[in-house]
């Protein structure tokens, strides 16, 4: 009970309390909070970590090649003697930037398309959904290869290529949410008091679509990391010596299998695993946090 007396003139109407409530609900999810902590640590590490370590990710030092983890090289070294820890952190920065950018990009496209289709409905809905169908049925790999060949590999082409084929799920789910929510009485009530369409779509309906958006976003992060790895594997992603987690994993295939250099695969794999898992838990927590009616955890 908020017994703190609020004097009537104090502006209490804004949604500060709503946000606080959401954070309170989020905190109740232990795994989500843990996931958030893991993600924060990893983000911090990939941002400032490489500056603190005395190695450079691209300097070749054949004298110390293929070393297992030790105090000098916490994650060991590769066949060119490069420090794995620095490469994992450096690669992580790139991988995470690609993944986050691609997800943001695909969310923007997916939410806008889905919201417009669901809210406006009718012929426009039909057209937009057929566009979604077309994107589902396109041979994505072929188009991506074409795109990268035409534009050239690089950060933005790769982000665009991944985003271009991952917005459709979001669009469909957001459209479904809009279709149901726009029928609800509170939307009619808002319209009756004179609220405009844009404001209804953004302020009244979007919060209700946040659940599915968060779910697709969390799945999208994992998918984007894997897509980037696949592109790297095909030689269409980032080129060596530039490291990414996916790239490191693929580079590690032969050393792990035939030479038993387990550390080459373990650490980038572990990072992908940790990030994907944490993102999923954070997603769970967020989904509950944005749903005011979910009271028990």
């Amino acid at each position: 009970m908020s017994s703190a007396l609020v004097t009537p003139a104090v502006p209490v109407v804004r949604s500060a309390r709503g946000r606080f409530e959401a954070w309170r609900r989020f905190r109740r999810h232990r795994m989500a909070v843990l996931g958030l902590a893991v993600l924060a640590t990893i983000a911090l590490a990939v941002l400032v970590g490489p500056l603190l370590i005395g190695y450079d990710s691209e300097t070749i030092a054949l004298a110390s090649k293929n070393q297992p983890p030790s105090l000098a090289h916490l994650m060991g070294t590769d066949e060119l003697g490069r420090d794995q820890l620095v490469r994992v952190l450096d690669g992580g920065r790139l991988t995470l930037s690609v993944a986050v950018s691609a997800v943001v990009f695909s969310l923007v496209v997916g939410v806008v398309v889905g919201a417009v289709a669901g809210y406006v409905g009718g012929a426009l809905d039909n057209v937009l959904m057929r566009v979604v169908d077309v994107f589902y049925s396109l041979p994505s790999l072929f188009v991506v290869i074409l795109l990268v060949i035409l534009v050239g590999a690089g950060f933005w082409p790769i982000v665009t290529a991944i985003a271009l084929f991952s917005w459709m799920n979001t669009a469909r789910l957001v459209r479904a949410s809009y279709l149901t929510l726009k029928q609800r009485e509170f939307v009619e009530a808002a319209r009756g008091t004179g609220v405009g369409h844009l404001r209804i779509a953004v302020r009244h309906i979007l919060p209700g679509a946040l659940g599915p958006i968060i779910v697709t976003a969390t799945l999208g992060i994992a998918a984007a990391i894997l897509s980037e790895s696949a592109l790297s594997f095909l030689g269409l992603g980032f080129q060596p010596p530039q490291a990414t987690w996916g790239g490191l994993l693929y580079e590690a295939q032969r050393p792990v299998v035939s030479l038993g250099h387990w550390w080459r695969g373990l650490f980038p794999g572990l990072m992908i695993f940790l990030v994907v898992l944490s993102v999923n838990y954070v997603g769970d927590g967020l989904r509950d946090a944005v749903d005011p009616k979910r009271r028990r955890s």
Binding site: V13, S15, E185, F186, A189, T193, G194, V195, H204, P292
Partner: peptide
């Protein structure tokens, strides 16, 4: 203006009730 049947679905569940009332003042 209109008062609706179902007080459970006629208020936006993601807005404080004060914000719901204030919105009517804001948009007009």
């Amino acid at each position: 203006q209109m008062v609706f049947q179902d007080p459970y679905s006629s208020l936006n569940p993601w807005m404080t009730v004060g914000a719901t009332v204030r919105e009517a003042l804001d948009v007009n």
